[in-house]
Amino acid sequence: MKKTAFEDNIKRIEEIIGYIEGNQVSLDESVKYFEEGMKLIKECESKLETTKKKVVKLVSKDGEMTEEPLDEGEENGV
């Protein structure tokens, strides 16, 4: 299966966290990585929000399948 840009962004964020937490870079480099990470996080949040709006659940009504928007509580597994 081909990785999506979202998955690539998550992988890169994990790499950045590793660099910063591992003290593998200077303070200046840490700041640059932090800025890059924040940009990637915002891109991921935007993609998640777009995807969330597309999610629907199938509900059987009168023997027919219909689509209804995902309830707010259900998105958190409630």
Rank of each mutant, 00 (worst) to 15 (best):
Y19W: 03
K47L: 12
G18P: 00
E64R: 15
Y19I: 01
A5N: 03
M1Y: 01
E64C: 08
V78Q: 11
K54Q: 14
L48T: 05
E64G: 08
K3T: 02
K52F: 12
G77Y: 02
K61F: 11
D71K: 15
G73N: 11
N76S: 05
E49N: 13
V31W: 12
E15A: 01
G22E: 04
E75G: 11
I16C: 12
G18T: 09
D8P: 02
G77Q: 01
S26R: 04
E36F: 03
A5E: 05
E36T: 09
E75I: 15
N9T: 06
L48C: 10
E43L: 04
I17V: 12
E68G: 00
T51I: 05
S46T: 12
D28A: 00
Q24M: 11
G37H: 02
P69M: 10
E68T: 03
E72P: 00
I20Y: 03
T4P: 01
I41W: 13
T51S: 05
I41A: 08
V56Y: 10
E49Y: 10
G37N: 10
Y19N: 09
I10S: 06
M1H: 00
V59C: 08
E74D: 13
I17Q: 08
I10V: 15
G63D: 05
E29R: 05
G77L: 08
